[in-house]
Amino acid sequence: MSAAVTIIMIEDDEGHARLIERNIRRSGVNNEIVPFTSGTAALRYLFGNDGSGLERKGDALLILLDLNLPDMGGIEILQRVKENKHLKSTPVVVLTTTDDSQEIKRCYELGCNVYITKPVNYESFANAIRQLGLFFSVIQVPPAAT
C-alpha cells in the first residue's frame, strides 16, 4: 500500500482498536492509522465541518468500520460514505462483532468492500487482522475524487 494511504479506524472499543492496530502493525503495515471512537468524530473528519467531504479531496483513505457505535449505527456511516461523491470510491472494511446475515447483506448492498466478523478466539482474530494487513499492503486505493 502506498505510504500516502491513511487508515481511518472507527471503533468505539479502545481495546479492540488497540488489538487491531497491533496486529496490523505486526503484519508489517506501517501506514498512518487515525482512530475514532465515535461516529460523530469520524464523520467530522471524513466530511469536514461543512459535511461536503471536500476537505478529504485527493486523500487516499481506507476505512475500517465497526457497526456498533454508541452514537450512531456504523451502517449510517457506510451509507453516507458511499453516497458522497468524493468518498464513494474509498474502500470500506466492516470489522464488527455482528454476524447477523441481514446486516451483512445490507452492508454489501450499501457498497461495503469487505465484511469481517471479529472472532472471539484471539488467534483467529489476530490471524484475520494480519491477513487484512497483508491485504492492505497490496491493495490499491484511489485518492478521493476531486
Binding site: G15, H16, T98, V120, N121, Y122
Partner: peptide, 17 residues
C-alpha cells in the same frame, strides 16, 4: 449476547497478549 461479545474479544485478545 451481542454486546457481551465485544468485551469478550478484548479479554481474550489481551489475555493472549
Amino acid at each position: 449476547s451481542h454486546d457481551l461479545r465485544s468485551p469478550l474479544v478484548n479479554i481474550m485478545g489481551f489475555t493472549s497478549e
